[in-house]
Design a protein around this nucleic acid. Structure first.
Lengths: 204, 204
DNA sequence: TTCGTTTCTGACTATTTGGTCAATCTGCTT
DNA sequence: AAGCAGATTGACCAAATAGTCAGAAACGAA
């Protein structure tokens, strides 16, 4: 049914140029405040090409956001590869979020802005977290109140930590400290014993 | 230096009509996707009047957002009037946020969207919370890790709770339960003993 | 009532912008 | 080499839009 033909390298180039341009522009302004002319100018591409790849502005913006999201998603799964303990996996996600906010603040800003429906449980980035929380709950590692609000709770903390790190450019050690503190607060809130939470937070 | 003349009632009427129109429109779309013509049409006002009150679109949007923010701000101080225990005050803020999200989801959406720099400590809405956290820390009611990240921690939880309540239209009892659960997680994360947190959460 | 001031009005314009399309180009297949 | 499918180009257009301004209206004071 799906006859996915591999896109030609030329096609990929122009598309990548457009996305890259959008990546830069969307950091500062919402899509509605950006003219397509600006995008194609920055991408070094003719206007017509834009509509060869995207039916309109908003599909374009969605594609750019998806690009960033997939980056983070991949990094999270990579970081958690081989980690079995669900609590450690949960913490790993926050660590990736913090690293991302510090190393690529512009992309992170874009991610945060596109994440309006951030708590949607079907969101691919959140699927894994949801499963980890459920596993931890089943293992009796979290307090039962986390069953319903555990997911939004943790997502909110990851988001706000990213925002905080982006706004206050902390020095590396300070950033590490903020992450560790947020991990302690977050994990104990979920019901992880304080000493265990501190141990996980210390493992930078 | 400030010669604040009271605005005439007519002036206030048109301004209020414009803000009300903006309130409705800005819920669905960002300001850059809204034409001034739409605003004035919905407000039943001539276009020229718009520029009598606001120099441009973005000042207008800011004014609309400020309107909502001041509403919430007032409600928080009202709810916490007379409450001395800083931990109870902190919890009170979240309760107000939840109530607001449930009773006025449209306004709440607007608030959340305008709150991009939500963790700014100078933000008037956050000033009070910051002071409460500092007071609680000084009284030894919170774990020391909350000194730096306590404010963003709590703000993130309030925000994510609002989003969660808006997205999933829960029945009143369910909404109460979600608030209580988020309070338990949040407060224990801050370092409040679990039984104390549960007690505060129970006091609907 | 009269007059001066402030606000409102809505037609008008200069500009911007999303989207189209026929011609051109590119690279692959035969 | 020749042919072909699909990608690229950029001039072009119709619609939308921000902001202006001169006159009308409402208001407050005397």
């Amino acid at each position: 049914m799906a006859s996915q033909t591999t896109p030609s390298p030329r096609t990929q180039r122009t598309r990548a140029a457009l996305i890259a341009a959008g990546l830069e522009l969307l950091v500062d302004r919402p899509i509605d405040a950006i003219a397509i002319d600006e995008v194609v100018a920055r991408a070094g591409v003719a206007k017509g090409s834009f509509f060869n790849h995207f039916p309109d502005k908003h599909h374009f913006a969605a594609a750019v956001a998806a690009e960033v999201r997939m980056d983070v998603e991949a990094e999270v799964t990579r970081a958690n590869a081989g980690v079995i303990d669900p609590v450690a996996r949960i913490a790993g996600g926050m660590r990736v979020a913090a690293t991302f906010a510090l190393s690529q603040p512009r992309r992170a800003t874009l991610l945060l802005r596109s994440q309006v429906p951030a708590t949607r449980q079907t969101h691919p980035l959140n699927r894994g977290l949801k499963e980890d929380i459920e596993a931890a709950l089943a293992a009796g590692l979290l307090r039962p109140e986390a069953a319903h609000v555990g997911l939004p709770y943790w997502l909110g903390l990851c988001q706000v930590l990213m925002i905080h790190l982006i706004e206050t450019h902390p020095a590396p050690e300070a950033a590490e400290a903020r992450l560790a503190e947020m991990l302690v607060l977050g994990l104990t809130g979920l019901g992880v014993p304080a000493d265990r939470a501190a141990a996980i937070a210390r493992a930078s």
